[in-house]
Design a protein around this nucleic acid. Structure first.
Lengths: 248, 248
DNA sequence: GGACGAGGTGTACACTCGTCTACATCCGCA
DNA sequence: TGCGGATGTAGACGAGTGTACACCTCGTCC
């Protein structure tokens, strides 16, 4: 858990100093994920846990906000890149599904049946990710609603960036007819935000993971197909008239 | 803001003692909403702010969890009752809309057009409520993701109860055909949770309030109509074929 | 080769904190 | 009238905190 933070000093000259900063970030995350809020834990507490002298903290950070922002920059970037990469990796193998829709026969219901797989994959991807980075994720969610305005702003921004990424990916992973760019972005935003709840449930109730995953998938499906039904119901009618797959 | 907490000593004998408990709760909420997390503020800090002796705290609460739980019980109950009442008050004047649907002509699209009003009212109601009880609400959201397991559990429970209330109200305010009780509850849960985000945005960005309100309404509409499209598309088809109101 | 600066350490001070014990005040009730 | 309990007050103790100051130890660069 966040141990990878330590392995970045690789070949940077071997100074004894480089480790300190990362040690402090890792210690803070570790402590905050179990004990308390990031802003509320003590300077001495963290440095003690990191095996450093209290004063060393000042060498790297002016206060805890600064440490938090540094952590967000590191792990947030990793999260964002990780999600993008993993969402696009399997994309190539199912490109045909997307291309089929580019033909002049928009069939949302049929597409949605195929889209269910994509949604399921994406949901699983997020849930796996938070399971892997549990400590950092829990702290992040805490601070997203926490007391530090700087931290809140940074995390809100991160979530919005991730939502923008998702909207962009949806554009060619799930090119539903009748889905405007604005609607895509709006839906992505609520999905990303709602996933924070689903993720926490997922982490805290390991015995209900399947149910939670299903709920999340269903949630996303409702939003997308609901948008289509609201903005272009005639597409649904057409599709349904053509076969009514009645997707459970 | 939360000043009403002070006015409850009304005619209880005029003891100097009764005020203490409420003073402490109010002081804690006030401090926590601006300064820091509830669990992280000090016993002395709160009592000082409340104009009491530090030790007085012990007379009423064993620790901060206990104070938090007491506050949740008070304000949470108020919130829940307030929402129910205000959701049901205007319900009588539009009962006909609901009754029309009980006839044997299920027409979800037309109903949804009417439903839009109900959704808009409900959203407005929540947003007004959080604006009125800003301090308590902000603290509640903070602690919902905070460090105290007891507090988290209590607040999660409160949200679930509110969601259950909403599901029940939806049953006769918006009796959509093809909406199972389970789906109603699931949707209510995600709506209530998502409203925490919308509400915070609403409080923090007063100049974008109209946009946020619209987003929230649209979000709810997508979920309900999406559920119908997923579980009973033939209803949508029928309705659309009969007139295609093409809402927005 | 010597100055320099970054990372790290040690000590010390003033302050806040939670909590303990003892005392004061006021209520309701017998 | 007197008593018990609930509420609030006063003072004190030890632990922990943030941070200022002085010092050490390297690798780097002129």
């Amino acid at each position: 858990m966040a141990k990878d933070l330590f392995d970045e000093r690789g070949a940077d000259g071997g100074g004894r100093g480089i480790g300190g900063r990362q040690k402090l970030i890792a210690a803070a995350l570790q402590l905050a994920s179990t004990t308390r809020s990031l802003a509320s834990l003590g300077l001495r507490e963290v440095t003690r846990y990191a095996g450093l002298n209290p004063n060393t903290f000042y060498r790297h950070f002016k206060n805890f906000d600064e440490l938090g922002l540094a952590a967000i920059e590191q792990l947030g970037g990793e999260l964002r890149r990780g999600l993008r990469e993993r969402r696009r990796r399997p994309a190539r193998s199912r490109k045909p599904a997307a291309k089929a829709a580019k033909t002049k026969a928009p069939d949302p219901l049929a597409m949605l049946a195929d889209g269910e797989k994509i949604v399921a994959e994406s949901v699983t991807l997020v849930l796996d990710f938070v399971t892997e980075h549990r400590a950092a994720y829990v702290v992040g969610i805490r601070e997203l609603h926490g007391t530090s305005p700087a931290m809140r702003a940074a995390l809100t921004r991160l979530l919005d960036e991730i939502a923008a990424d998702m909207a962009e990916d949806v554009e060619f992973l799930l090119p539903l007819p009748g889905l405007t760019p604005q609607a895509r972005l709006d839906i992505s935003r609520v999905v990303i935000r709602q996933m924070t709840f689903f993720s926490m449930d997922y982490l805290e109730h390991p015995n209900q993971r399947e149910a939670i995953r299903t709920q999340a998938e269903r949630f996303v499906m409702r939003l997308f197909i609901g948008e289509i039904a609201l903005s272009a119901p005639e597409l649904l009618v057409e599709a349904a008239r053509r076969g009514l797959p009645a997707p459970r």
